[in-house]
Design a binder for these strands. Sequence first.
DNA 1: GTCTATAAGGAGATAGAC
DNA 2: GTCTATCTCCTTATAGAC
Lengths: 203, 203
Amino acid sequence: MSILSKLSFKDQAFKLRESAILDAATIILGNKGYDLMTMDDVASNVGISKPSLYKHFKSKEELVGEALIRLIDGAIDFLADLDAALSPLEKLTALLEWALRVRLDGGIPFLPSTSAHVREMLMRNLKYIARIFKLNNQIEGLVVAAQKNGELSASLPTNVILFSYYARTCDPTVEYLQIFSKMSKDEIVSNMLHVTFSGFKPE
Amino acid sequence: MSILSKLSFKDQAFKLRESAILDAATIILGNKGYDLMTMDDVASNVGISKPSLYKHFKSKEELVGEALIRLIDGAIDFLADLDAALSPLEKLTALLEWALRVRLDGGIPFLPSTSAHVREMLMRNLKYIARIFKLNNQIEGLVVAAQKNGELSASLPTNVILFSYYARTCDPTVEYLQIFSKMSKDEIVSNMLHVTFSGFKPE
DNA sequence: GTCTATAAGGAGATAGAC
DNA sequence: GTCTATCTCCTTATAGAC
């Protein structure tokens, strides 16, 4: 075995461990949030020591940034894989449904409901900004298209629909319904989608 | 001056300081959230020392609990002061509008978007639970009445409307619009109300 | 009741051996 | 590259003087 392939193998193992770290961080973030997630949590969850963790990510902020970037990329990939024949509204509905199901399965969606502190941290992360910018452009395009073709209200400012759409991906109603109602996941998703697009009023 | 009135005077001053502490805690909670609010913050903001602060509230949890109870009471009072001639939907709209305006002025509404950690803490606070139970009963009554008289959809489960309504009081869309749009407070409120009750779809 | 000073413990980050 | 052990700082909470 050559030196080169040895290095490559090491590199692969390194990447695998990095992925395992990000998986753990994502799960813990979902359970406890940023402030309560500790680097000890992550390290012990992966089964490595804290200094090893710091060999992969030089700070807690960087680790969380990378974990969230991966989620954004997941959303971008999801959009890319959607049937191109779907209408803008159908695509928006599918993406929101996907995000809601991720949360119902204990995960976190592509846009966590961030505290002002976390939001500030992310705004300093240029790599994160670039990804969120790309995703935002795609979703904004879908909203504008849906407004143009009459699927969504054209009298509402696009920003209002766009930001409210993001807010629905991390709406705490999902957790309330999981805890305090006997509804199935499918029922929760269906009701959340209805409330998001049609509101509370009668048809 | 009698001893009794002296005590009463001292008592009054004590109450006044207590109120000032709760004011400060409420503002800091709004700015930084529970985890990042420190007792040093609160003490220095009020202009007292930390041990004095602990004479009033025996822990951070108790302080935050009392601050949030005061907010709940504010919402209960607001509902009680509403014109009795208003319809259920009009009352629900007025309360949500009030909560949104509180947030636009930098305050926090009666129901903060709590992390799982904070929610757990509050669930152990029996005094808090009692107040939230009272407020919830009133709001749930309004929702049921509005569903009965056709102002709100009767086909949606009451829980879905109720929890979504709570979620709107702390919807991050408000902050996004404040930061990223040029809309006035009135426009933000009006759009939030529209999206809440009528959704994104055309009329 | 209020303060100065400090305990007690948690958490991010690192030194240095292997 | 990984670990054990440690540094440093921050935060909750309190002891003890006045």
